[in-house]
Structure formats: structure tokens, C-alpha cells
Design a protein around this nucleic acid. Sequence first.
DNA 1: TTCCAGGTAACGC
DNA 2: GCGTTACCTGGA
Length: 299
Amino acid sequence: MAGALEQIPLDGWPFDLAATLGSGQVFHWQAWEGGWVGTIGEEGVFLRQRDPGVLECSAGKAAVVRHYLGLEEDLAAVVAGFPADDEALQRAIAWCPGLRLIRQPAWECLATFITSSLKQVPQIRAISLRLRERLGEVVRLEGMPCVWGYPRAEVIAAAGEEFLRGCGLGYRAAFLHRSAVAVAEGSCDLRAVAGLGDAAALAELCRLHGVGEKVASCVLLFGYGRSGAFPIDVWIERVLRELYFPRARKLTHARLDRFAWKQFGPHRGLAQQFLFHWARLTDCGRRAVGPAGDVMVVG
DNA sequence: TTCCAGGTAACGC
DNA sequence: GCGTTACCTGGA
């Protein structure tokens, strides 16, 4: 039993919980009772979507959930601004229109992506859960398995680099530790980043050791709600190359960055998320798979 | 065994 | 600026 639940009606643009939680933005939600348990900041929450038009969540958490899942965003208007003649993008959106950008707490998002370098999703997940269990605050909710909040920067700073290595972080241990120290002692102010313009915010995050443009862009996109941030990783690079530059011999990140502005506009980060999710799961449409990873019957 | 994976920093030119 | 290389770890 998942305790008392409340219902969030979903009207207007579709919403797909499974796809949103499984699209590589967050790594800590655990499947349970037909839904997911996890934390939003310090709060334990159960989420479930049995009906496309209704999202269930733990009683009293609706406001937090709505913000976290970006349900207030008028996606119809944003999507209408994408180029109608961009076949790949339109196909990606049609395949999974219910995908949303999550608004994670900044530190949790930053720390998680610092630990993601050269790791596959299941490993990023394992590291995230391990850090939570060993250093985070346990959250007990009536009738739910217990979950852990992401450890605060001060706690990771105090734990030390060697402890983090012991959690399987490898060379990322130094990155995470140094960043935690900077955030904990205030030489990097994650709240102040929210008040900066996109370029300044990116530069501020990149001052942290272990944070380059890719990680910083992910944090702006998934942690600060900046839908204009455009992280370029090996996946999206592969996808953009295949779809838009099949014959180019060399493609610099700077060129892809300029292209994304021109092609997708101010919400290019959201466009990227649609393309990324579609391309990764369907191999650019070559594989018959549904938006939550389920195999579809071809016919 | 060997290779590779959702990146970054530090070097060389 | 642009290209290379080392870096931990776990799974194929």
C-alpha cells in the first residue's frame, strides 16, 4: 500500500510519467506498486500514472510534484514554435509527446551529472543510490519502502575523496569532492546561478573542477529549468550527425551549438530531449519500441 | 583478456 | 583554438 494518495488531473498537452522518469534526466526513482518511489528534494514521494489523464501522488505533495515534473509548462505553445518541416523532430515529438523537462534541485542534479561521465545509465543509477544510502538522510513514509535524499554538499565534502572512491566513483571521486567543498564553503553559490543569464550561469558552473560544458548544460536544463541549454554528449552528437549532417566530415561542438540555435530556437534544450529520448530508444526509428522502453508489436 | 562507456583536465601544437 | 591522452570501474 502506498499510503494516502491524491490525484492530479492532467488536461491539455499529454504527460507520460514513465518516459519522463526514464529519459536520462534522473536516476533514483524505483519501480514499486505500478508506480515509482523516490525523493523530490528532502521529501519522499510515490508517483503513479495508471490512466493517461490522471497522475497519482502521495497526499499533500501535489504542488511539489507539479513543479518537479514541469506540469505548469504550456508545452503546446513551446512545441508549436518548433519548425514544422523538421521531420525528425516532429517524429520524435509524436512518438513521445508526454516527455517533460524535470526541475531537480540544483545540487542533486549537479552532483549526479558529475558522477555520470563515461558511465552507462545503470551505473549512474547504482552510484546515485549508493551515495544516497551511505550519506543521505533516510526518508520513511507510511507503507512505502524507505528512500534516501541526495546527500548535501557539506556531507559529501566531509566524507572525503577516499570514501567516495570506496563508493565506486573512480576518478570522479575527486571531481565530486572538490565541487562539494566549493559549494559547501560558498565559493560556488548555486542559488546565485539562478539569477545569472544562460552564458554567465554556464561559465559559473564550469568553474567547478570536474564540470565541463556538457555537465553544466545538463544542470541548467534539468536543474534550473533553462530550456535553452543544449548539452552535447556522444549520443546527441551521433543523432545530430545522422539526421542533419550525414555527409559532414568533422563536426565541432561549436558548430552543433550554433546549428541548434538556428534550427530549434530558444527552447532547443527541450527539442534535444525529445530527439535524445527517441533516438536512444528507437535507434532513430529503426527499432519498434514504445516511449517507456516497451517493445511494440509491429504490424 | 580486451574493449568500451551519456566527460574533463592537462598537455602539446 | 584544436587535437590527444590519461583517468576508475564494471559489464559485454
